[in-house]
């Protein structure tokens, strides 16, 4: 089994899903839990609610906002487990359909085999 991060990409002013999307996402999550693909997931606050911390040189330096200003941002995520990329792609496809947005699929190191 391998683990993948599915990031939900959005360019909407409000990252939250509408009622229909919420229902679809819930159904998708339930299915993943049943099938053993679900590891974790959730929606994220707007980029403006983020804080960047730099503690490389002792005292933490805080910056209000996201690390980079972009038109598109990560609005939510899933961590899934799947045997291979084809299986993960099927999940990501379902995910994109349910939350009605583009998603990015990336393999997570270390949690494999």
């Amino acid at each position: 089994m391998a683990q993948y991060l599915i990031s939900v990409l959005s360019d909407r002013p409000d990252p939250t899903a509408d009622a229909m999307e919420m229902a679809a996402i819930d159904a998708f999550n339930e299915q993943m839990q049943k099938d053993g693909n679900w590891v974790f997931g959730g929606g994220l606050g707007m980029p403006s609610t983020a804080t960047v911390i730099d503690a490389r040189r002792g005292e933490a330096l805080l910056t209000d906002g996201p690390f980079v200003e972009t038109k598109e941002y990560v609005a939510g995520f899933w961590i899934v487990q799947a045997p291979n990329l084809d299986a993960a792609l099927r999940l990501a496809t379902q995910g994109s359909k349910s939350c009605n947005r583009r998603v990015e699929l990336r393999p997570i190191f270390g949690a494999n085999d």
Binding site: A2, Y4, P83, L85, D86, R106, P107, F109
Partner: peptide, 11 residues
């Protein structure tokens, strides 16, 4: 390798 593209003939 990293993304684990499977080594088989597709379904």
């Amino acid at each position: 390798k990293t993304a684990k593209i499977p080594y088989y003939v597709p379904s």
